[in-house]
């Protein structure tokens, strides 16, 4: 029987099995406690690090909570006007086809104001990766209704709950763009549980491998929480996400 080591001895003698990727900066994330953005950022950067392409990648940050993504991702980045990230990424990729290009967008950015840019970049099969974080709300501006807000869900601009008669139903953008021939991979993931994080990371890896193989547009939707906007604790928001978001936005590959 081996001797029992103290935690201090394990830290000293053991293998570090989880260390923050160097492709994340040391800046403190501006996100609320428990927000899924941090994990989505991290696994995206881990994929770039594991593929060894951090120095060949240009990221595009949106307007929304992740507007400051370039403060946290330690790669060259551009910040796009609200909704225009897929157009900005198109401009980069068309003139720098040998670089890896991705957008990181929220639901308001991608599915409301940027719908045209999203659909047409996908339809042209731009050889880019779109990371789409869907938390059903406008987080940055203080919890207003998003195109993905659930039926009956309360937000600051749907204080009596989203009325689909008046406001329509939550848009399923990933399913919509999956119908386009230019899209080679469309999947919906989540990052609120360890196993789901690992799956989401695999999906992001596949998306960047697709770009490497010049297959077209890959979109990875990540259903995430917005505990501040939903007015819940982080743990409760993840339970609410499972019970309410996932039935409407079911996880899994939609195409490819």
């Amino acid at each position: 029987m081996a001797e029992i080591l103290t935690p201090e001895e394990i830290i000293k003698q053991g293998e570090p099995v989880f260390v923050k990727t160097k492709l994340m900066t040391d800046n403190t994330l501006s996100y609320c406690p428990g927000c899924g953005h941090g994990v989505a950022h991290r696994i995206t950067m881990e994929v770039l690090e594991e593929m060894g392409i951090g120095d060949q990648t240009i990221g595009v940050a949106p307007v929304g909570c992740s507007v400051l993504a370039y403060e946290f991702m330690n790669i060259d980045m551009q910040q796009a006007a609200h909704g225009r990230a897929p157009a900005v990424a198109t401009g980069i990729k068309r003139l720098f086809p040998e670089k890896y290009v991705f957008t990181y967008q929220g639901d308001g950015d991608l599915a409301a104001i940027g719908t045209a840019e999203t659909i047409h970049a996908c339809n042209r099969g731009e050889n880019i990766v779109i990371i789409f974080v869907n938390n059903g709300i406008y987080g940055m501006t203080g919890g207003q209704m998003a195109p993905t807000t659930l039926e009956g869900m309360v937000s600051s601009t749907s204080p009596h709950g989203r009325d689909v008669e008046m406001m329509g139903s939550p848009i399923k953008m990933t399913e919509m763009v999956a119908t386009l021939p230019g899209v080679c991979f469309a999947t919906r993931q989540a990052v609120h549980k360890p196993g789901l994080v690992r799956k989401a990371k695999k999906a992001i890896r596949k998306a960047f491998e697709n770009q490497k193989d010049k297959k077209g547009t890959s979109i990875v939707e990540i259903v995430s929480n917005c505990n501040s906007g939903w007015k819940m604790t982080p743990v409760d928001s993840n339970i609410w996400l499972e019970e309410n978001m996932l039935p409407v936005f079911p996880l899994g590959d939609i195409k490819g």
Partner: peptide, 9 residues
């Protein structure tokens, strides 16, 4: 893996 702020090694 679930820590959003990467504070755990």
């Amino acid at each position: 893996t679930v820590c959003p702020d990467m504070v755990i090694t």
